[in-house]
Structures are given as C-alpha cells and as structure tokens.
C-alpha cells in the first residue's frame, strides 16, 4: 500500500487514539522524503508546506540560532505553520541521513477538519507547547 507504514503513523501521539481504518486512511496520504546530513529541513520564518514524521535518523531543533532539542524516530514536527498558515517557528537541521514521511498542507488541513479526534490531540499538543513556552522551558 502506498504511503507511510501504518505502525509508524500509529506511534505518533496525534493519531494514537484512532482506529486502524482511520490510521490507514491517514498513512496513505504521507509521502516519503529523504534529507541529507546537514540539510536544512525547515527554516525558521519560512512558510510551512508540510508536517513530517521521522522514520530514521536525527535532527536538531533551533530557535533564533539557539539549539533546543534533538528529534529522532517517531518524533514529528511542522504542524504549527500548517495550522495558522504562518511561518516556521523553528529551524530543523538533519544531523544524520534523515528519512521522513511528510503530509502536505493540502492534505493535513482537511484531515484535521474532518476528524475531531485528531483535532483534539492537536489542541492538547498545542496547549502543552503554550504552557511550556509560558514557563520559559523548551517545549517537549
């Protein structure tokens, strides 16, 4: 079946409570994308075109040039700019060969709009990030 492996999508907290059929539908929308070591995956301030799920490899997150955290397999990023159609809030750089599955803005929007469970998970994730930002801690 084209798209991302179902198990990889199921591991994303955002999609964890969905049933297998729903996860299958979402997995089909993902497309594989490879980034070379050292490549800028997303750049702070740029418009956002896709949400990414890391399958293998590592990447660092930096804001205003300051490193914040490291991302690895199972982590996802890029959803904020897709929600508000704003700019990327951080720069993410591949620190090894990085294999991801990406879901574009054009597929992500309708998916969230049509699926309340995903929308709720996304809200919880956003609230967590907001709370972390208010407390001055790097978002988890």
């Amino acid at each position: 079946m084209p798209g991302a492996p179902i198990e990889a999508v199921q591991r994303v907290p955002l999609f964890a409570d969905l049933d297998r059929h729903e996860v299958e539908q979402i997995a089909r929308l993902f497309k594989e994308r490879h980034f070379a070591e050292g490549e800028t995956v997303v750049r702070e301030g740029s418009g956002g075109a896709a949400f990414f799920l890391i399958v293998s490899g590592e990447a660092t997150v930096s804001v205003g040039g300051a490193p914040r955290r490291t991302l690895g397999p199972g982590d996802y990023f890029g959803e904020i700019a897709l929600i508000d159609e704003g700019t990327r809030s951080a720069t993410i750089t591949a620190t090894s060969e990085l294999d991801c599955y990406g879901l574009t803005f054009w597929d992500f929007g309708p998916l969230v709009q049509e699926n309340g469970a995903i929308g709720w998970k996304l809200l919880q994730s956003m609230a967590k990030k907001l709370r972390a930002a208010e407390q001055g801690a790097p978002p988890s």
Partner: peptide
C-alpha cells in the same frame, strides 16, 4: 522514481509554498 518524488516535493516545499503565497 526517486527523482520524480524529489520533484514532487520541490513543488510542495516550504519555499514553493512561500512563493505561492
């Protein structure tokens, strides 16, 4: 096929969407 996929992503990249906006 991987070249075709890369081209598809270039049309769906952050810079392409910024340009479209």
């Amino acid at each position: 096929s991987s070249a075709v996929r890369e081209i598809w992503w270039s049309a769906n990249s952050d810079s392409a969407i910024t340009y479209r906006q």
